[in-house]
Amino acid sequence: MIDKVTILLATYNGELFIQDQIDSLKKQTYSNFQVFISDDGSTDNTLKIINSNLDDSRFKLLCNQRKGGVVNNFNFLLNCSIDTEYIMLCDQDDFWLNNKIEIMLNEFKLIESESYNVPLLLFSDLTLVDQKLKKISSSFYKHLNFNPENNIDLRYISWRSTVYGCSVIFNLKLVNVYNEFKLKKFSPMHDHLLALLAARHGRIHFLDKSFTYYRQHSNNVVGGSKKSLLSKLKRFKSLYNKVDVYCKSIISINELNQLSLLKKVNFISYNVLPFFRESPVFTSFFIFLFFLNGAENESSS
């Protein structure tokens, strides 16, 4: 029996690119899949485009009510009744090579055969492209000087992740662990949490190939474009606020709120500092806000 794959597609105001993504799914060499779609209350023509594709029975629109952001939208999908062993995540503005499901599923099964029935996640590289799918870089990780193997290290994944949801395949066991995890007020991106839980409770692997055109444009939630120093300075306040919320989510999922100052220093020394060179600006922000939030928690308790 050929295994069916469930693809979770979260959408919101994606009329410019979503048909490209749907077309790339329809052209997959591995055709035994179903696509669960959740729309976050789009106000453009996204729903019209989705509905025009529902004549293909593999595509199912589950909900079009507002959930409040990409994380909540994917959390809704991950909490749905998934009846397949293998799951992939799909962004509305990317483009999949036609052999993506076939190769990633085969690779995943090879790993699974050696992994003794545990939660598993496999992620791959990405190809950076512009709005018209013109190639910017054949490797997301090389373009940004990130080491993808860092994500396999539990020290790293406990506070930072460069695993992107559109590049992953995972099993139902990981979904069950994810849904049992009690999300707090401040929670990380869904793909970071999936990777962290896979590392904690099972295994995470990297496939050094790209099957996804990761489109760069002004509206994508997490992009791979390099930014100039001037651009970064202009975005300082926004960056500060984002890293602050991110830091609070890391403190929350690792239950670091009640740790002593010494144990917090140990966390930074053991988990964060070994990877400082990969992203010095981000890491410096993180360390500063980590201790600032810790001090605020102690004063309020």
Rank of each mutant, 00 (worst) to 15 (best):
K27G: 07
S42A: 14
D56T: 00
S57D: 14
S42D: 07
Q34H: 05
Q34G: 00
S57A: 10
F36T: 08
N51H: 07
N32L: 04
T46R: 04
Q28M: 09
S42G: 08
D55K: 00
F36V: 03
R58G: 10
I49F: 06
F59T: 05
D55A: 02
F36L: 15
N51Q: 08
I37K: 12
S57W: 10
S52I: 14
L47W: 09
N45L: 15
T43W: 10
D39L: 04
K48F: 13
T43M: 12
D55I: 09
Y30R: 03
Y30N: 06
T46G: 12
T46Y: 12
I49A: 11
L61T: 02
R58C: 13
I50L: 15
F33N: 03
N53Y: 10
G41Y: 08
D55V: 05
T29A: 05
V35R: 03
I50S: 02
T46V: 15
K27D: 09
L61M: 13
S38F: 07
G41W: 11
S52V: 09
F59K: 01
I49T: 07
T46D: 08
N45V: 09
Q34N: 12
N51F: 04
K27W: 03
Q34A: 07
T43N: 12
L54Q: 08
N53I: 12
D40V: 05
S31W: 02
D56Y: 03
